[in-house]
Computed example of a mutant assay.
Amino acid sequence: MTADDGQAVDHLRRLAAQLEAHSFKVCLDAPAGPPPRLHVTNPMVPTVSEDVLAAHEEDGEWWFWLSWAGRIGHAEDIATAAERVASVLHVARR
């Protein structure tokens, strides 16, 4: 694991804790090779899930990204990032 991967895992763990506190299921995947990712699932609708990555910009600032390259929030603003992930995984009740 590279130093960047280690930092990404640290950021993803903090986001995972915030999402778990709001009842989302999370699974941190940090294999050798591909970047670490956090798989987040809506427990009310298990087919609704998303992968979140943490990466830094050239200026060194860390951000969270959705798997389809949607930047969702600064790594230091866990609450906002968690809210944005939740909004992506939200399913309206009928």
Rank of each mutant, 00 (worst) to 15 (best):
Pro35Leu: 04
Asp51Tyr: 14
His56Tyr: 00
Pro36Gly: 11
Glu20Thr: 02
Ala16Ser: 14
Leu28Glu: 08
Asp51Asn: 14
Asp4Thr: 13
Leu66Asn: 03
Glu61Arg: 14
Val45Asn: 06
His22Pro: 00
Gly60Glu: 04
Ala79Gln: 07
Ile78Gln: 08
Asp10Leu: 11
Pro34Trp: 01
Pro43Arg: 07
Met44Ser: 15
Asp29Gln: 10
Ala21Asp: 07
Val85Gln: 10
Glu76Tyr: 04
Ser67Ala: 14
Gly6Ser: 14
Gly6Pro: 00
Ile78Tyr: 09
Arg37Ser: 11
Val88Asp: 07
Glu58Leu: 06
Ala82Cys: 06
Val52Arg: 01
Glu57Gln: 13
Asp29Gly: 03
His74Glu: 10
Cys27Gly: 06
Ala30Glu: 13
Ser67Thr: 06
Asp4Ile: 13
Gly73Pro: 08
Trp65Asn: 01
Arg93Met: 00
Trp65Ser: 00
Ala8Gly: 02
Leu66Trp: 03
Pro43Glu: 15
Ala8Gln: 08
Ala69Arg: 13
Trp65Phe: 09
Val48Met: 12
Thr47Met: 13
Ile78Ala: 10
Cys27Leu: 10
Ala86Ser: 11
Asp5Ala: 15
Glu61Lys: 12
Glu58Pro: 04
Glu83Gln: 14
Pro43Asn: 11
Glu57Ala: 14
Val48Lys: 11
Asp10His: 10
Val91Trp: 07
Arg14Asp: 12
Cys27Ala: 13
Leu66Met: 11
Trp62His: 03
Glu61Met: 03
Asp29Leu: 08
Met1Tyr: 07
Gln7Phe: 03
Glu58Ile: 00
Met1Gln: 12
Ser23Pro: 08
Trp68Gly: 02
Arg84Tyr: 11
Thr47Asn: 08
Met1Leu: 12
Leu38Met: 09
Val91Glu: 12
Pro46Ser: 15
Ala30His: 12
Val40Arg: 07
Gln18Trp: 02
Pro43Ser: 13
Ala21Phe: 05
Asp10Glu: 15
Glu20Tyr: 00
Glu76Gln: 13
Gln7Glu: 13
Val88Met: 10
Ala54Cys: 05
Leu12Tyr: 08
Leu12Arg: 12
His90Tyr: 15
Ala82Ser: 13
Pro34Ile: 00
Ser67Arg: 08
Ala55Phe: 01
His74Ile: 03
Ala55Asp: 05
Ala21Ile: 02
Ala3Asn: 05
Ser87Thr: 05
Thr80Tyr: 01
Ala69Ile: 08
Val91Gly: 08
Ser87Trp: 00
Ser49Asn: 15
Gln18His: 08
Leu12Glu: 14
His39Trp: 07
Ser87Met: 02
Phe24Val: 00
Pro35Asp: 11
Arg94Ala: 13
Asp10Ala: 15
Gly70Leu: 10
Asp51Trp: 11
Val52Glu: 01
Ala30Val: 09
Gln18Met: 07
Val48Leu: 09
Ala16Pro: 03
Leu53Val: 04
Ser23Asn: 13
Glu76His: 11
Leu53Phe: 13
Asp77Cys: 03
His74Gly: 01
Glu61Phe: 05
Pro43Val: 07
Ala69Lys: 12
His74Trp: 10
Glu57Asp: 14
Arg94Val: 12
Leu12Gln: 11
Gln7Trp: 02
Val45Ser: 05
Arg93Cys: 00
Asp29Thr: 05
